[in-house]
Amino acid sequence: MISFNVFRKEFRLIRRSLVIWTTVGVLVILVYLGFFPYVRDPDMALAIEAYPEALKAAFNINAAVLGDVNLYHGLVMAYVLLLSSIYALMLAGGLVARDADLGTAEFLYTKPVTRRQIMGAKVAAFLAALLVLWVITFSASVVVGLVVGEGRFDLGAQLMVHLSGFLATMAAGGLAFAAAPLINQTQATTSLGAGIGLGSFVVSALSKMSDKLAPLKYLTIQHYAALDSAAAGEPFTGGMAVLAVVFVAATAVGYILVERKQFAG
């Protein structure tokens, strides 16, 4: 149930932002993962060990992580996930809210396509953009990881890191698909996307700092993606399933709301 010409147009309209966010993701990998030979220096580990325990737990920084290319890649990918989740929220929200905001609804929704086909095209454009982002960032991880990892970079485990990240950004986008039909301004979805993406990252960090805050982790995509576990070769498959379900359920809500949405001008 996809309108392919709407898909082509929507994908074309988001190309520029995709290039920018993918470039930023790749740069983060190049710079941070590229630094691995320097961060695994024993002096660096000693310096890190002097940090407060809560801070180390919050940001998953410790001597073991800094000494292992696979665990360190998981740490780097946490920041890529932060960026890409903000992008996913903004992208999905913008795809839906734009029609009401720019007034393109009067053009698009009076053409011989159903609202379901239009929404399908937008979801497909979103997924295609995420796929491009995660394939390219994975390629960057592989290249840099193989160069700096001295043969220890585990491709299978790190593929699971990216797959978990992909699912987490899908879930974030799904939430935006559910919320965007209620918001008629692209700018509002952008702000909301940045706020929720950053908020999830901060809450995830806080939840690791004390037992009292620990239950908050269930509200974050970081918990379900569990990039650190995936990087260690133990992906949280239950969490990945939750992310997939969140995407499907939230996107379904988005479909229903778009079907009922009114464009009063």
Binding site: L13, L102, G103, T104, E106, F107, Y109, T110, K111, P112, V113, T114, R115, R116, Q117, E259, R260, G265
Partner: peptide, 29 residues
Amino acid sequence: TRGGGELYRQVGYVPAEVRCYPEMTGQEI
């Protein structure tokens, strides 16, 4: 019906205020 669709194949509509994709040219639209 609510979902739109094929019915509009034979309908043309000019809104009171024409708004469209700002970055596209007239020809592309």
